[in-house]
Design a protein around this nucleic acid. Structure first.
Lengths: 181, 181
DNA sequence: ACCTGAACACCGTTCAAGT
DNA sequence: ACCTGAACACCGTTCAAGT
């Protein structure tokens, strides 16, 4: 379903502005985003029926980036190393930080949200399976559990202390998975 | 600093009402809580200068309960078992669910909030040290990291599937700490 | 001292009116 | 088709007026 040219431009601009605004402040208001994108609130709501769907659209891009990273990493590194490196990226992408965990939180029952979440799950499953097959982690780990724990990483600020914490947490969780470093 | 009798009653009633309201819906509005407690909004704000401080006051009780549980558990069980059982309580007390993780999130820089958080940290440290001393977990674990990971548990609903997940997650994290079951 | 409740600025969201 | 922006109900918070 193609949009009229001006509508398409508006949509793109809104998404771009929203991405910046939400990165700077996860609580940025809808009206302020509309204003920054030079559209009326009605236009914003025409493209995204509510706040959640806007936030979700912003994240979808980031999630896709993470998902497409998997084959590249697996091609270049051993499964466990690939897995670790992917998790580093997961932590980084928290620029648009924990806004996403709030969304995922609300996703409990919403199927629409689970779809958005799915590429992440698939990515983790792929990496986990590769590691299980290579014997680098123990069998039987649960990808959803893992992602839930790792959601914590999005709440850690990217300071020096924060980075140290991220690597400690990753080490702990990987050890919990039966990996040996 | 003692309060006048009516003020004290109001404060208690507000806290009780807020506890219920926030358990039912973490987003319960300040005005609705005031109304349910039969006070004007101004009275609510006289006792708790903003939303955060009200939420925090509600949690403080729960946190204290968890903290005072530690010696009891350590007296009755081996350190590792005590630690595990304490974590089970931690997960349960998520009745007033993840509202608290949002607060802890905002606590980053706020010293006042860190104080509230402190009893939790102390509890974890006590349990961890006991386990390290008994050789049941590896040395050098970080209590703050641990609590951060376990904050995840507050986001898990208390359904059957949720409980299974909690025990899987706990097992993973404990294994990450070097515990053997 | 403490309480009340109208009022403020702002929020997410809607919708009649325009092009 | 799509956009605009005034308007609605509600939010957290404040403050003049009461007891």
């Amino acid at each position: 379903m193609n949009l009229r040219l001006d509508a398409q431009e508006n949509r793109d601009r809104i998404l771009e502005v929203a991405r910046e605004a939400l990165s700077a402040d996860p609580q940025a208001s809808m009206n302020s985003i509309a204003k920054a994108a030079n559209v009326g609130p009605g236009t914003l709501y025409r493209h995204f029926p509510n706040r959640e769907s806007l936030v979700l659209a912003v994240y979808r891009n980031e999630i896709d980036k993470l998902a497409t990273l998997v084959p590249t990493l697996l091609a270049r590194y051993s499964p466990l190393t690939a897995f670790r490196k992917w998790c580093d990226q997961l932590a980084k992408f928290g620029r648009v930080k924990h806004g996403i965990s709030d969304v995922l939180d609300a996703a409990k029952s919403d199927k629409n949200l689970k779809e958005t979440y799915l590429p992440m799950l698939t990515a983790v499953r792929t990496l986990m399976t590769a590691c299980e097959d290579s014997g680098e982690i123990a069998k039987g780990a649960n990808a959803e559990d893992f992602l839930m724990l790792l959601g914590t990483l999005w709440r850690i600020p990217p300071t020096a202390a924060g980075k140290a914490r991220v690597s400690r947490l990753l080490a702990l969780v990987f050890r919990g998975l039966g990996a040996k470093f």
